[in-house]
């Protein structure tokens, strides 16, 4: 990407300043109103509805028994071991996938940054996992590791090890699918960050006799801190919502349930709208909390995200 051209303030025509500003303000609001209304209608309204539903004991198949119970559903969820187990599972998967993606994504970004041979092929191929449906990726990895159709055990001489029979091995396969599918996104964000590192600094360091490792840790990484944090934030929030891979591969068996999957099961499978809404609200709050930690705690500069 080239240097930013901050949108030049629209001046040039001799119009009284205050009136022009007022017109501009009004036009700006008019043009953005539809977007704001639609965004709020499709998210804020259902979310408020969930907040309301979460105060009831309410089951779709037993509507007569609907009853206002205040915050009791939240008490039930937060004191339930299953909730905490899903939180732990989700956090583990999030941390592992984001960490591995960061490493692999960085390596890929370096390759793409330096590549002279097959530049277009590499960039095209890296977009394919990005574009592929997550469910398809989940099936591909599931079939690869499954005892009946899979080649993995055969290739690595693992005999009849049942990957989906245990918690940790199931999580490993879930992570692999997730990592494969989302590393391209990470590496493209990092690639954009790499492009920002001034070449002059690199050369100066090389002239000063810095090793490759020194250049990486002293020059490259510090200069891409912004890009790295943004990529990590985006991917963390995304990974925390993990649902598709779990649904396809284990359906939550072997304690691989994630928070999203738990919410889905309460809401949709059990049609326990009250309890399920409480889980949904808590899921939403966790995502907000993660974002807040990143922005306040790690000082992720969102204005850089906004492109100023």
């Amino acid at each position: 990407m080239t240097a930013t051209t901050t949108a030049a303030p629209a001046v040039g025509i001799p119009v009284p300043v205050s009136e022009r500003a007022r017109n501009e303000k009004r036009l700006g609001w008019k043009l953005t109103a539809p977007a704001v209304i639609v965004m709020l209608a499709v998210t804020a309204y259902p979310m408020l509805n969930a907040l309301w539903l979460s105060l009831f004991s309410y089951r779709l198949t037993d509507p007569a028994a609907r009853e206002f119970i205040g915050l009791r559903n939240y008490g039930v969820v937060l004191s339930d071991a299953l909730w905490w187990q899903t939180v732990v599972t989700t956090v583990i998967i999030t941390v592992v996938t984001v960490a591995v993606e960061l490493v692999i994504g960085f390596a890929f970004a370096m390759v793409m940054h330096r590549v002279v041979f097959g530049r277009k092929v590499v960039r095209t191929s890296i977009l394919i996992p990005y574009g592929i449906i997550t469910v398809v990726s989940a099936f591909a990895w599931k079939y690869a590791f499954a005892l009946d159709s899979g080649f993995v055990n055969n290739w690595f001489g693992l005999g009849d090890f049942a990957w989906f029979g245990e918690r940790w091995s199931s999580i490993v396969v879930i992570c692999m699918s997730e990592i494969w599918k989302t590393t391209p996104f990470m590496s493209l964000l990092l690639l954009a960050g790499l492009a920002q590192v001034p070449e002059v600094l690199q050369e100066a360091a090389a002239v000063d006799g810095a090793t490759w490792r020194q250049r990486l840790t002293r020059v490259t990484l510090p200069n891409m801190k912004g890009a790295i944090m943004v990529a990590v934030l985006f991917r963390t929030l995304d990974a925390y919502r993990l649902f598709d891979n779990v649904f396809i591969m284990t359906a939550g068996a072997q304690k691989t349930e994630t928070v999203s999957f738990l919410a889905y099961r309460q809401m949709i499978s059990r049609t326990a709208l009250g309890l399920g809404s409480a889980v949904s609200v808590l899921l939403f709050l966790s995502v907000v909390a993660i974002a807040a930690v990143f922005i306040k705690g790690f000082k992720v500069d969102l204005s850089s995200v906004r492109g100023r």
Binding site: D160, A162, F164, G165, T250, A253
Partner: peptide, 11 residues
Amino acid sequence: DPALSTTDEEA
């Protein structure tokens, strides 16, 4: 079955 905890009718 090695995959007992995931075995369904067809498996």
